[in-house]
Design a binder for these strands. Structure first.
Length: 479
RNA sequence: UCCUCAGUAGCUCAGUUGGUUAGAGCGGCGGACUGUUAAUCCGUAGGUCGUAGGUUCAAGUCCUACCUGAGGAGCCA
């Protein structure tokens, strides 16, 4: 008999039919006569209840059916006599596939803290919360490719090892095969990278954008979806040293086209989750409510699915940095001195507290801020007519802040060179990037979406380390 | 990196102004129980109180340093 997944049994299993299921035991309970086994195989958040007659199987084998053990069960599906589940399986035959010493197994049939599960990242796939997150994560990965495929975008694998250290997106991890105990030095006493594997200094990528732009200057609409590495010593609930980023890059798109795409993209992804991850989202919604039940009413977040619907159903607010500064300057917290960093006027770098005020208090919906002062943005962003601001856009979400950062790119060779010189970007190393501005340059735009930040929003989880299987953060690369 | 808080049994936590043999619930183990829903009931084992110093007659409790974790900030996605 072939194994049937529990998700399939719950969806279209026929009472009276025989099935074979395999999975991991969540709990076993019962009396002298009958045992109930909650079995989960990862295909769905729900367990299948196995009913096992004690006399039929004997104590010896049932004792081995402990929390965490893997078993195979042959049996007949039937309507459940007990409350709590519609169907259950009455076992005819039961085999223990892998024993699990209940004394040593860290997971117990009870609530565990997320911190504890993080320290047991190798086992947390067996928990409701984490398996739900993992399934939603997969659905979102699929939806990303679906969205871009439907729009005729081409997925590009940009390099993970890069020689460019000029991307300006943060501290980089160095990649080397040099013996760190015997580093070859040049005559000037510097590290002699000519002896290194690539014959030059290399790093892990902090962004696929520059290479993405090259591809867009030929394929027109491309996107990347790959790992990204930042060696920042960031210790927050929304930063990882290794994360996944989606970076579309579109020829002939101006900033408005870019914003339209970003908004449509986010709404598509969230809508996809609502329609395709119902059970997992319902569970995660409960989990969130449970976690926040001790909070004051006004500090609780909106119900998860309601929150997702809200984003899908409403237009994002779009305003320029300069307009945002005016709003913030006239805001109550600013006048009452409640901001740690008071807003004086144009030029201020917006802090988290300001972004949160705009998104969570003032507009109460996602906000796209555009046209930031050039001083606080990257060199490649297109300069506006005013010579002061650049065509940047940040999409700000409640709780998580910046979920997307993007811009229209500077396609004018001279202006780009000027900006690079102003910001001391070594243009000679970037000859290949500059070449696109020499040969058939076109207006183009793109953005980067932090995949795990999207996951935070969709799942309602509070810590980015819980929406990626094996988080990489400062001092943590255990698994 | 900075600020704040925390580290006591396998897990979640309590431990009163420093004062006898450090507690609970859950989990484990043993037993009871005719269908359970994190089952219930009875019994039982289990702790160098994060590490290293220091103050004191006496430290889980006070002080210092370090380690680890969490939350916030910065950097950003």
């Amino acid at each position: 008999m072939r194994r049937t997944k529990i998700s399939d049994i719950l969806k279209d299993g026929v009472a009276g039919n025989d099935y074979l299921v395999k999975g991991w035991v969540r709990t076993r309970r019962g009396s002298k006569q009958v045992n109930f086994i909650a079995l989960n195989d990862g295909s769905v958040i729900h367990n299948l209840q196995i009913v096992a007659d004690v006399e039929k199987f004997g104590e010896a084998i049932l004792r081995r059916v402990t929390t965490g053990a893997s078993i195979a069960v042959w049996g007949k599906l039937s309507a459940s006599q007990g409350a709590g589940q519609a169907v259950e399986m009455v076992a005819d035959k039961l085999e223990v596939i892998g024993d699990c010493d209940a004394n040593d197994f860290p997971l117990q049939p009870k609530k565990h803290s997320l911190e504890f599960l993080r320290e047991n990242a190798h086992l947390r796939f067996r928990t409701n919360t984490f398996s739900a997150v993992a399934r939603v994560r997969h659905a979102m990965i699929f939806a990303v490719h679906n969205f871009f495929t439907s729009k005729g975008f081409v997925n590009i694998h940009t390099p993970i090892i890069t020689a460019s250290d000029a991307e300006g997106a943060g501290e980089m991890f160095q990649v080397t095969t040099l013996d760190l105990d015997k580093i070859p030095k040049t005559a000037e006493g510097k590290v002699d990278f000519s002896q290194d594997f690539f014959g030059r200094a290399t790093n892990l990528t902090v962004s696929g954008q520059l290479e993405g732009e090259l591809a867009a200057m030929g394929l027109a609409d491309i996107y990347t979806f790959g790992p990204t590495f930042r060696a920042e010593n960031s210790n927050t609930t929304r930063h990882l040293a290794e994360f996944w980023m989606i970076e579309p890059e579109m020829a002939f798109y101006d900033l408005d086209d870019n914003m339209d795409l970003a908004e449509e993209f986010l709404k598509y992804l969230i809508n996809y989750a609502i329609n395709n991850c119902k059970d997992d989202l319902a569970f995660l919604s409960n989990r969130l409510a449970e976690e926040e039940k001790n909070k004051k009413a006004d500090e609780r977040s909106m119900e998860l699915i309601e929150k997702l619907r809200f984003v899908v159903d409403n237009d994002f607010v779009r305003l320029t940095y300069t307009e945002a500064i005016e709003v913030l300057k006239d805001s109550k917290p600013n006048k009452k001195g409640q901001f740690k960093y008071p807003i004086e006027g144009y030029g201020a770098d917006l802090q988290s507290e300001h972004e949160r005020y705009l998104v969570e208090k003032h507009y109460k919906k996602p906000v796209i801020l555009t046209d930031y002062p050039k001083e606080i943005k990257a060199f490649y962003m297109k300069l506006n007519e005013d010579n002061k601001t650049v065509r940047a856009m940040d999409v700000l979400f409640p709780q998580i802040g910046e979920i997307i950062g993007g811009s229209q790119r500077e396609e004018n060779y001279d202006k780009l060179m000027a900006r690079m010189n102003e910001m001391s970007i070594p243009s000679d190393e970037m000859w290949w990037y500059l070449d696109t501005r020499r040969f058939g340059a076109v207006p183009h735009s793109g953005f980067g979406l932090g995949f795990e930040r999207l996951m935070l929003f969709v799942t309602g989880m509070g810590n980015i380390r819980d929406v990626i299987p094996f988080p990489r953060t400062p001092k943590n690369a255990e698994f």
